[in-house]
């Protein structure tokens, strides 16, 4: 790879990694509280369509991000009501939200725009170049000449880390994910915490979806989330439920996808699928404890009900 190609590759890695990072950061928070939201995909695709519609309506990509976030919260609220509030099985509810989200966004899109085949053209989120930082050789422009949503992810990772490990609220949140009964006995309102984290996860997944539509594609396509919700869940595991590591893991997944495109573009006769599989293999290794200990929150995916 020449230096120019390397820069392009890094830029693509970050661009592909950002939506994963946003969704995975939200999922990290909800999983830390014991909720595994398999319906994340539903929030992402909802965020993509919500973002597209908002951006068209307001003729502003920025407001599109806001409506995308709202759509993500809406999808997550279905999960919150059924899986968290009513204690339904988290896996089944999440699957329903994913399938429902994909189906409904497709239907809304077709009803609104018909099956014309012509691409929808949306206002896009312009890249913002950060002075000085973007001038760092090679990595500078890859990291610091991105859509504003990228900077949101950079800021969120350390902020959420500090929140989780250095504030009383973060401590209560983690206690809810490890031992909800004990948390209740310590005066924490378990369901409230879990509802809040689920909606927060939906919010970030919605922004991730809006980013897909408005920063990447400049258009909406059915199923454009393409499994990113599930990849984000794997990213959380590889990042060991630690927001800072999760951001790095997301960029790593982004790099793996970028590499695949590059190898194809370069016409190299390599089995590029191997590179695509690499992050998953690492995730498995993390789960099995081969790359350091990765322990999920003890009460992850367990419905909880007060015994009062």
């Amino acid at each position: 790879m020449s230096q120019a190609e390397l820069v392009l590759f890094l830029e693509a890695s970050v661009r592909l990694g950002i939506p994963l990072a946003l969704a995975a950061l939200g999922e990290t928070i909800s999983e830390r509280s014991g909720v595994i939201n398999i319906g994340l995909e539903g929030s992402i695709i909802g965020g993509a369509l919500g973002g597209a519609l908002g951006a068209l309506a307001f003729e502003s990509a920025g407001l599109g991000v806001v409506t995308g976030a709202a759509a993500g919260v809406l999808a997550a609220s279905v999960f919150a009501v059924f899986a968290v509030w009513l204690g339904a099985d988290q896996i089944i509810t999440g699957t329903a939200v994913t399938i429902g989200g994909l189906g409904m966004t497709g239907a809304i899109y077709q009803a609104r725009f018909g099956v014309t085949g012509t691409e929808l053209s949306l206002p896009t989120l312009a890249a913002v170049r950060v002075p000085l930082l973007a001038d760092i050789p090679i990595v500078g422009s890859a990291l610091f000449d991105q859509a504003p949503t990228a900077y949101l992810a950079y800021l969120l990772a350390p902020t959420l880390w500090y929140f989780l490990f250095h504030t009383p609220y973060g401590l209560e949140l983690r206690a809810v994910g490890e031992a909800p009964d004990a948390a209740e006995a310590a005066g924490v309102r378990v369901l409230l915490v879990r509802l809040a984290t689920t909606l927060f996860g939906g919010l970030l997944a919605g922004i991730a979806g809006a980013h897909l539509a408005l920063a990447h594609a400049g258009t909406f396509a059915e199923n454009m989330s393409a499994g990113k919700g599930f990849i984000a869940i794997a990213v959380v595991v590889l990042g060991r439920w630690n927001p800072v590591l999760v951001l790095l893991a997301a960029l790593f997944f982004g790099a793996a996808s970028a590499l695949q495109f590059f190898l194809q573009a370069l016409g190299l006769d390599l089995a590029y699928q191997i590179f695509l599989a690499l992050p998953y293999l690492l995730t498995l290794a993390a789960l099995a404890g081969w790359v350091g200990r990765a322990r999920a929150p003890a009460a992850l995916a367990l419905p909880w009900e007060s015994k009062r």
Partner: peptide, 22 residues
């Protein structure tokens, strides 16, 4: 002081003591 322990096993002792003390 509960008969059945209400500590969070995976948190440290300090964290358990601080929990809910806000």
């Amino acid at each position: 002081v509960h008969q059945h322990f209400t500590l969070v096993p995976t948190l440290t002792v300090s964290e358990n003591l601080a929990l809910g003390l806000r």
